[in-house]
Simulated scan of single mutants.
Amino acid sequence: MASRCKFIVILSFVSQLFFSQNGKRYIDSVRQAFHIPEVNYAVIDEKNIKSISSLGLHAVNLKDSASLNDRFHIGSNTKAMTAFMIAKYIEKGKLKWNTKFFDLFPEWKKASQKEYYNITLEELLSHRALIQPFQGENDPQIPKFEGDQAVKRKQFGKFVLSLAPAIPDTDHAYVYSNAGYTLAALMIEKVTKKTWEQLMDQVFNADLNLNIKFSWPENRKAKDTWGHSFENGQLIPIPSTTDYRLDYTEPAGDLNIKLPDYIKFIQMNLKGLKGENNYLKASTYQYIHDHFPQYSIGWYNITEKDIQWSNHSGTAGTYYTLVHIDKTNSAAYIIFTNSFSEETTNGVRLIMRYLKKTTTNK
């Protein structure tokens, strides 16, 4: 009996090794075919890393090989981390999910559109406050603001609330808005008297040791990933010294992180969704992921073929990241890349499909 169990363990190990080797070859072939400089990916459950690898180069014009120590800008996957941080302070009693924005900023009410008077924190985080999107295309002209970044975010918030509400289409109950996350950040800044940056640093670095950083990965002083924009049919490496800003919507999309650290964050979510209290209570994880249909709090919330998913992608135009959390089977699939183009997104979709197909029930 013991020898049979040992044989099964060995067979399982060989099977995983075979998948890992063949999986890496296939994924690298997709990476090359779709002209993606670097791909880091992982398949995980709440306790284990089933598959993980780094493939490619830091930039199209460099020979620096990819590694799991590389940092990636995660774009809108920042939203789930901002919501997670806010959730911690809700558990501490600083706010409630249904706290109204103007209960904290009554002096702003006079200059704001009346349709916003009753918007709540959870409506901002779930894109149901109907704030204008501010996604970089067809945005209203932003006035020039003065002061440090936290002061400018307040001025931006006042400006956003002076604009007419966005109108949802017939298929959705929400309008995806980066600016809504700025307003949510202003709420937590008000009650804690700390900036979004300080709060994120406290939760993810001091408390959880996940080594997040802000804006693009540093690639001029150390070897690390270069993001790539797509111009005139070519990928263009973007140095970290490039003048770049997200127009005061940093809480919606301006973190960078290493894949192994991001895995720890997703595993906390998986454990919480299985009913385990950790940094947040299990009930808080359930609220974040499942309270609203379509888009909950920092996560798209969908059901496909009897499987419940929390999904999100992220880009600020130079990196592209994608994470799918299978809430039914307690698994997650994560892909980080350092480019953004139609080819990148198509290649990532192929890789995601492959990872799901080849690791199900393994």
Rank of each mutant, 00 (worst) to 15 (best):
F340T: 05
A83K: 01
F265S: 10
T328D: 12
E231M: 11
A206R: 06
K154I: 15
I236H: 11
W226H: 13
Y279F: 13
I266Q: 03
K213E: 08
D326R: 12
M187D: 11
K194D: 11
F159C: 09
K274V: 03
A252M: 06
Q198V: 07
Y319M: 05
L183Q: 02
E107F: 07
Y279M: 06
K96E: 15
K152M: 02
S65P: 02
A129W: 10
T321E: 12
K6S: 13
N40T: 03
K271S: 00
E38S: 05
H324Q: 08
L273N: 15
I90Y: 01
L17A: 13
D261T: 10
N205R: 05
D171V: 03
I10Q: 13
Q113H: 13
T360P: 00
I266V: 12
M200N: 14
I266A: 04
V14Y: 12
L199S: 06
D139C: 02
D103N: 15
Y285S: 09
N118F: 07
W196A: 02
T321M: 09
D247Q: 13
H289E: 06
T359D: 04
M85W: 03
A332C: 07
F101M: 14
Y117C: 06
L57T: 08
E218P: 01
L11K: 14
K271C: 00
Y333K: 06
K47H: 14
E218M: 03
R25A: 14
L121F: 04
S54D: 06
S29R: 14
Q308E: 15
V14C: 12
T345F: 07
F159T: 00
Q155P: 08
L68T: 11
L350V: 12
K50E: 01
T337G: 13
N69Y: 12
N69V: 10
